[in-house]
Write a protein that binds this DNA or RNA. Structure first.
Lengths: 220, 220, 220, 220
DNA sequence: GATGAATGAGTGTTCATTCAT
DNA sequence: CATGAATGAACACTCATTCAT
């Protein structure tokens, strides 16, 4: 049930990817050196370069993986056979949870979007960037669809679609900026936080569940 | 005394700060070299180092300036003698507008927050970081106050205060991620965009002006 | 016994040698990596290292082979039972032709001579270098012998023997610097070019056949 | 009288150029590291990079300087108001002498010509290469002119012009391959060697001065 | 025999920083 | 004030070589 659809390349590959995700998240692309990643792995650069031909390729691989994870987070909700509000709620909860549970990958994802400025020098890079932007578009479109449906049915209040969509998504993305996973790896009240965020975001669309309670524990 | 509150250091100083803000925004902290900033100024490194003892100090100066700008954006609304909803609206509009009009500085601000780990190597650095975090806290507190007031008066619906506050602020910050200033420097429909964003954000608090129109022009 | 004088090691060995000759010729010793050679073979490094213990050994092997080829080019002429002029002409034609027909190997040979300083680090290396220099000496001596004979018989005009010998040989080597094999592998007018070069070189020794025609076709 | 036509950039610049010429000569382009050059200078890489933006630029600078030197060697003879044979003799003597006296630069020059194979990756590089080839062409053309003149006047015997020209030049270039400057920097019998080489080369064109003596001292 | 993984030393290059002028 | 020179520590990436399989 938890086996990933695509075969996991190799344990080494996954290991490096994970380490890279954490480093890129903690320090950003430029400030992360391949040596840093290698040290994180307890190995030398050579290992990294054996699996990834360049730093940019490594970053792209992390970003691609992150994108997959993001899609996996919303697809169940998107595919549900329900009314737009319920579908949106499920997608949003899925996304908000991923934002916390796969924090490293998600932060890299956002960094990467800001990164058109790092000047895609090579043709290959430009293609990778274009592909990534296309995927982001596809991701946004899934939300846009459901929002449009809700607007048409008169159950959601949407002003300017693009602005509203961006605002809605940025709200769900919020945890990236302040959430820090428990160092002890314990369960955490991720669900409760996600619930609060989604409620706030959906109210912005005029959807109110009249439930004003919060179950977030105040932590340690 | 007609001198402005904070004396404008010197034209040279301001010039460098502005150039640095643009460079840091375009490429991020790590990817920006002092040479880049100097070239942007049409001078050499020497000038920069004459005014700022290190790259980090330059960055801190930009960040401090950005923080000032952010405060300036919300203070008029905060100081207004009006009900919480109106104060919040004014503060939010001010912030959203600054987010677009002073885009460079604001992006640097957000980058800097993610960056608690660019090695606070020196004691001096740690202090600078601490001071900055304190200022950010003060900034948030101004919003928190008004939100608390609104909640107490029953005119705003707030679940978990921290989550809601973060969500509210991140929504206003949204433009940093997708707004690009008109290259021709023309007026732009900043106000219209800000209006839409603020309406969305406030709806999340249960405040609805029932105005569902958008006046955003679709541009050139 | 019908086996050739030097047993052809193995097909694999020859294959690698040939590929290495081409790579070393195209890019020089330093710029050629073992990976490059392997890729040229359509295999991986392992194969190369299986037959040659180090890059330098591979290079030495190519150089040795090149030396053999050079000897093979002049020996028939040298062994001919004829007067010095005819012997010299045959040797020279043989050498000039080899210079074009075995272009890769010959270029490696010249490169190697310039390279007495690629750190003869190991004792083994020093021996290989010494052996190679001895062979080069033997090669030059074959020409020197015939030249001396010609001088003694008064049919060749030779000033300072070493200078003249070096000048004579470098002239024959000329094609290495500008000859490029036809990419379509067609017959080419190698003989005609060789003929012109040899005539020029022999005139320098005061030998003139009074034939001033050239049969070089101007190509496609 | 010995002041160079173009101002000598700066002493540092010249110093680096000279060191680079020696290193490139001794080890070739690929095998020479910037660190090697710096060590040769008794400084660090930084100095080299302060004056030359890249290794390739450094190499190009050396090559350009070498080309100048080569031109300076033959121009007096070329400009002389005399018959073709005398002009050719003067040019050839000049070239042969430069080949020994400026040995490092000249060897780099020849290496550079072989180097089209190092794949000119950047557009800028391609231009530099093209410019260099054009200069080499101009150089060859000066000889070709005089040879054509001599052939027209019936005082030189030239078969196929290109082959003969290349053979002639390669003969003059000969010392690059075997000449080693006296380590004690003493005067050396450069002129005597040049004289022998030029006589050999010109005999190849059917020009004979009937002087068969050599004045080369047998060295230490 | 041959491959893929891994390493460590190096190589070109960048860059923050210092300093003499 | 500002520049140019210089340095040393990184950093991305390459490569000869070794080794387990």
């Amino acid at each position: 049930m938890s086996a990933p659809a695509q075969k996991p390349k190799s344990d080494r590959y996954e290991e490096i990817l994970e380490a890279a995700a954490e480093c890129f998240q903690k320090q950003g692309f430029s400030a992360t050196s391949i040596d840093t990643v290698a040290r994180h792995l307890g190995s030398t650069k050579g290992r990294v370069y054996h699996y990834f031909p360049s730093k940019m390729d490594l970053f792209n691989a992390v970003r691609d993986r992150a994108m997959e994870i993001a899609f996996d987070g919303i697809r169940p909700g998107y595919d549900t056979d329900a009314d737009p509000i319920e579908r949106l709620r499920l997608m949003s909860m899925g996304h908000a949870r991923v934002m916390m549970l796969r924090h490293s990958y998600m932060q890299v994802l956002l960094d990467g979007l800001q990164m058109q400025r790092y000047g895609a020098t090579t043709e290959f890079q430009r293609q990778a960037m274009a592909r990534h932007l296309a995927e982001r578009n596809a991701f946004e479109t899934m939300f846009r669809e459901v929002l449009t449906l809700g607007a048409d049915q008169g159950v959601m209040t949407i002003g300017h679609m693009s602005i509203t969509l961006q605002s809605y998504l940025i709200t769900l993305n919020g945890p990236v900026f302040w959430y820090r996973p428990r160092s002890d790896g314990s369960a955490d009240n991720v669900d409760a936080i996600a619930h609060d965020i989604v409620r706030y975001a959906m109210r912005g669309l005029g959807i109110d569940d009249n439930d004003n309670t919060s179950t977030i524990s105040t932590g340690a």
